[in-house]
Nucleic acid binder design. Structure first.
Length: 997
RNA sequence: GCGGACGUGGUGGAACUGGUAGACACGCAGGAUUUAGGUUCCUGUGCCCUAGGUGUGCGGGUUCGAGUCCCGCCGUCCGCACCA
């Protein structure tokens, strides 16, 4: 016999004859679908713009302040949403709806980040065009989100793959390409350094105010067009560079530093990544390193996200110092006459007893002498490979080969065990004049600083280890006390202290504190030309090209001399051609020697074009750039497009930009003194996973647009809120295979024992982790809509706990949220008759007080994104009303309005049944009247020595004196104070603390 | 290794500037409705015991009073990782 389907069971129970008007999942669905249609028909959430194609200045003027609320740009994945995804969208929707009820002009919209690798990979697997699969995915995702009742301005939606959108992505790219960073230019805020149009640089060259740095000293006028283009390329904020990049054969593309994990693998797909020298497009984000770090002070972001960005930028103050290296030939090494190092401790140059350069350092070859080891070579220094230790040349070559074969992972896992070989050259310590050996060792990284260090073993742990292993002298130049110069060093001294043993004929640091010593020695080195104070960054320029099909084409083409030209504005967008074979060429993931091959390069009719650029050179042949932009490009500016998506004249009308994102008069909450509000969206909610990728890239683009005068705000995201994740339990069987979590049965453990779990009769084991297919613990929003309705789902997600915390999904607990809505519904509608239950009766004093306390609390909580406590307060108020025979209309209506941001459909339905035709979305949020918060009796706690021993009901305005007398007269207090009273602390009316002798 | 955050019932979590610890919810127990299961509703529920005691990871400190402030441990999570 077939089992009844869940629908039939639902019919049996929910369409009970006795309670036909109960708020069930079925009724929720009817209500929700109806209101979603009504909202859409009437454009309830459309926000008026002051300017541009949708200008409605009168409507803007009729509304209060503006508010821009932003969600993470969703990527339409093929597997659909799970219950963790909408968390942030629900939170922003609640916040937006709340502020709409406060009368604000709220802009909340959602588009789709639709270019990118997964769509392309999926398309390759299924043999369909990525556009087709992407659009199908978007359709499904839109359906799932619409069913959730999110109040988006649907007119403002778009996808990054729309021609009309990526036209402007390309336009912005060209603005960045057509700009250079003038480190000396003064900004409006008084700081130095900003982007300027490249035309202004050309003008400076032409007028002679600036001379191009050419090798042969020729001036601008003497250069050919091609040479001039090359000079300009050295300044542009987008440039091509032949440099070591992250090549990922498994994905068939190169990746940015930010997309490579600590383990040296791709963030997407977890394939090995190799360093290869390839010519690639870079964005000069390092020019903005200081501002990207400094301006974090002015935004309202969680401290941990700010810290992540600051760490990634990695600014450190120090000095660059050149150590001369006399070669066997009698000449000095390198262009600077030696090895330039970066150090944060220039005060310890006197203690530098050796130097180390990275194996990949270009100077290595010139340092290695012909012939045998020089005098003074220690036996340990010739390398671990005895067969190759006869000469420096062999030893260094062997070491470099070994180092090049090590992956980053191996370098790390080998940890602190230092290795290295002597190059055969000695450098001169510029302060002591002593000859110090130069080593090649892989604990120095080519990618940081200058790729070479001065080693101060007395005051650096790594150098100390190396010196100990290779028998190199260790000198103390810092001590805890100014006279501590003779104290032995059994371990590196890295603490703050005073310079010692740091003097030569012309300078002495002895006795100076570290900071003063740094200052003194930098001045000295600058005088002598041996060094200069400088700031070093960990941040590298942003690798911007990908060898993929499914991305924005670069609006760039090359002439036959290889000079890059912008595709003219009137030819944008440069559309992505439909090609027969859009699959990228991927390789064996471990094949480090493979080379990228962009799919677009296989479309010669698209690549080769004849164009007249109007520069007087007529129609010429050009080759288009065949790389595409990374996924991040589209998400770097989408929040700007929401402001004015129908504008075909410009990417955003300046009046719309300054209205929605302009600066506020007040600095953001918690900003240090002296900062000003930078502008940007008013609330951005998302996960921490984008802290150093999207959030950094978007800030960079925004600042370039600001410098070039295209936006008035200096930051894209004024306030950022980092949400937690919803996680879920997963279960494995005895072989460690995951089993379907929804089919697992729990068996409570006896008497405090851990519970046990079974699946199809066999024992399984519980784990806790991300929601997803691989752990077989995914629950879709659709299942929630069917079983409970969208409002219950929204209430549950918002009441689980603080938004910033990660918490476990517990489907059994959802019923609590449903019961709350059912009880609320029952206070409005009779379950049996459908009649209205409220009446115009006045609530009693206690309920009036509770109502106005609740209003005040809920307002505070909504504003502070504490939705869980707001809901708790509403439940308490509702529970009070539930106890009454006749629910007072005043209280019920206030509750309906207060619950509306969280459970908008049921609120609309109740509001309309209560006789209002104007809808709840723009109704005024209740206002708390402090005068109505009147306490009849207050419980006063009586403590004896801080422990609660008694309670007494008192009037809220009891005097301290009366309360004191009352407390002392209580039996329990008298019993405890027979020996006398030492002190009585009275905090009327709620607390008395009696301290006996 | 360095840096940061956090430890509260069986569970998720409340507790504003130090002032009734455990709001609200799940779960659990008992009861009502129901032919029954489910649903719904009501009551109870930190722990130990009878009164009473005890309790916010552990140990100490400041205070009339500490989940909250300070010091030292232990544990969990996150970030960075030879960054010169």
């Amino acid at each position: 016999m077939p089992r009844p389907s869940s629908d039939e069971r639902e019919d049996m129970s929910e369409q009970s004859n006795e309670t036909p008007f109960r708020y069930t999942a079925r009724m929720a669905q009817d209500i929700e679908l109806a209101w979603q249609d009504r909202w859409e028909e009437s454009g309830t959430f459309n926000a008026p713009n002051p300017a541009g194609p949708w200008a409605e200045p009168e409507r803007v003027a009729s509304l209060g302040e503006k508010l821009v609320v932003l969600d993470m740009f969703p990527y339409p994945s093929g597997v659909g949403l799970h219950v963790g995804h909408p968390l942030g969208y629900i939170a922003t929707d609640v916040y937006s709806r709340f502020h709409r009820m406060l009368g604000k002009n709220v802009l909340h919209a959602l588009g789709y980040d639709a270019f990118g690798l997964p769509a392309e990979q999926y398309a390759v697997q299924t043999g369909q065009h990525p556009r087709k699969t992407t659009e199908e995915n978007m359709t499904n995702m839109k359906r799932q989100l619409r069913r959730l009742g999110l109040g988006f301005d649907n007119r403002r939606t778009f996808a990054t793959i729309d021609d009309e959108y990526y036209r402007w992505t390309q336009w912005i790219f060209l603005k960045i390409w057509d700009a250079w960073y003038d480190a000396d230019a003064v900004r409006p805020d008084g700081g130095r350094g900003r982007a300027r149009p490249i035309s202004e640089l050309v003008e400076e060259f032409e007028s002679g105010r600036r001379a191009p740095l050419t090798e042969d000293g020729r001036g601008w006028a003497d250069l050919t067009a091609t040479e001039r283009a090359r000079v300009l390329a050295g300044f542009r904020l987008v440039y091509q560079s032949e440099a070591p990049v992250n090549w990922c054969p498994g994905l068939g593309t190169v990746l940015s530093n930010e997309e490579v994990t600590n383990e040296g693998r791709s963030e997407r797909g977890n394939f090995p990544v190799f360093k290869r020298n390839l010519s690639q497009w870079m964005m000069r984000i390092t020019a903005y390193a200081d501002r990207l770090a400094d301006d974090l002070d002015g935004v309202d972001w969680p401290e941990n996200v700010k810290r992540l960005q600051r760490n990634w930028i990695g600014r450190s103050q120090g000095a660059r110092v050149t150590f001369p290296v006399p070669l066997a030939s009698g000449e000095l090494a390198g262009q600077k006459g030696g090895i330039e190092v970066f150090t944060t401790r220039p005060d310890t140059v006197f203690g530098a007893t050796f130097m180390v350069i990275a194996p990949e350092h270009p100077l290595v070859d010139s340092l290695v002498p012909e012939g045998g080891w020089p005098e003074g070579t220690h036996a340990d220094w010739t390398g671990a490979d005895a067969a190759a230790s006869a000469t420096p040349k062999e030893a260094v070559a062997a070491y470099r080969l070994a180092a090049s074969r090590k992956s980053d992972v191996e370098r790390q896992t080998e940890g602190k065990d230092k290795s290295g070989v002597f190059t055969g050259s000695f450098a001169t310590n510029p302060l002591t004049g002593e000859a110090i050996p130069v080593f090649v060792a892989d604990y120095v990284l080519m990618g940081y600083g200058t790729g070479a260090i001065m080693a101060v073993p007395g005051h650096d742990e790594r150098d100390f280890e190396y010196a100990t292993k290779f028998s190199i002298p260790i000198v103390r130049v810092v001590a805890a006390r100014p006279d501590g110069g003779d104290e032995p060093l059994t371990e590196p001294f890295v603490a703050d202290g005073f310079a010692v043993n740091s003097a030569n004929a012309t300078v002495s640091l002895d006795g100076l504190a570290v900071e003063d010593a740094k200052e003194r020695i930098i001045a000295y080195l600058e005088d002598g030309g041996d060094g200069r104070g400088t700031i070093n960054y960990r941040l590298r320029d942003w690798l911007f090209s990908r060898q993929r099909y499914w991305g924005e084409p670069f609006p760039v083409m090359f002439d036959d001399d290889g000079v890059a030209y912008a595709v003219p504005d009137d030819q944008l967008p440069l559309t992505l051609p439909d090609v027969p074979d859009y699959s990228p060429k991927t390789f064996d993931p471990d094949d480090a020697t493979s080379s990228p091959e962009p799919p677009l390069s296989r479309v010669p009719e698209w690549v080769n074009v004849e164009v007249d650029l109007g520069d007087g050179r007529g129609v010429r042949h050009f080759r288009r750039e065949t790389n595409t932009m990374p996924n991040w490009a589209g998400s770097c500016w989408y929040y700007l497009r929401y402001l004015d998506p129908a504008n075909h004249e410009t990417f955003v009308d300046p009046a719309n930009e300054s209205y929605w994102l302009g600066r506020h008069a007040e600095p953001v909450a918690g900003a240090p003194a002296g900062t000003v509000d930078p502008g940007g969206v008013d609330l951005y909610i998302g996960g921490v996973e984008h802290a150093v990728l999207h959030l950094l890239y978007a800030r960079f683009w925004h600042k370039v647009l600001f410098d070039l005068g295209h936006v008035s705000s200096e930051e894209p995201f004024r306030k950022y809120f980092s949400q937690g994740y919803i996680q879920a339990y997963a279960y494995t069987d005895s072989r460690g295979q995951y089993v379907e979590a929804s089919e697992v049965e729990e068996h409570p453990g006896a008497h405090g024992e851990e519970p046990t779990f079974t699946w199809q009769g066999q024992q399984v084991f519980r784990e806790y982790g991300k929601i997803g297919k691989s752990l077989k613990n995914s629950v879709s929003p659709d299942e929630m809509y069917d079983a409970f309705g969208a409002d219950t789902f929204r209430v549950y997600e918002m009441s689980m706990g603080p938004l910033e915390l990660s918490k476990p999904w517990d489907i059994r607990a959802v019923v609590g949220s449903q019961r709350f809505l059912q009880r609320l519904w029952r206070n409005v509608v009779d379950e049996e008759t459908g009649a209205l239950r409220v009446a115009d009766v006045a609530p009693d004093q206690a309920l009036t007080t509770q109502l106005h306390q609740t209003i005040a609390g809920v307002r505070d909580d909504f504003e502070g994104l504490r939705f869980n406590t707001a809901i708790a307060k509403l439940i308490e108020l509702n529970n009070s009303v539930t106890k009454l025979e006749v629910p007072p209309r005043e209280v019920v209506e206030a509750m309906v309005l207060m619950v509306a941001p969280v459970a908008p459909h049921i609120a609309e339905e109740m509001w309309s049944r209560l006789g209002h035709d104007d809808g709840v979305a723009h109704a005024a949020f209740p206002v708390s009247d402090p005068a109505k918060i009147v306490m009849g009796q207050v419980t006063c706690v009586i403590q004896i020595k801080g422990k609660v021993r008694d309670r007494v009901e008192v009037s809220p305005d009891i005097s301290e004196e009366d309360l004191r007398t009352l407390a002392l007269s209580r039996d329990k207090v008298r019993a405890a104070t027979e020996a006398g009273v030492r002190t009585v602390i009275v905090r009327a009316p709620k607390l008395v603390n009696v301290v006996p002798v």
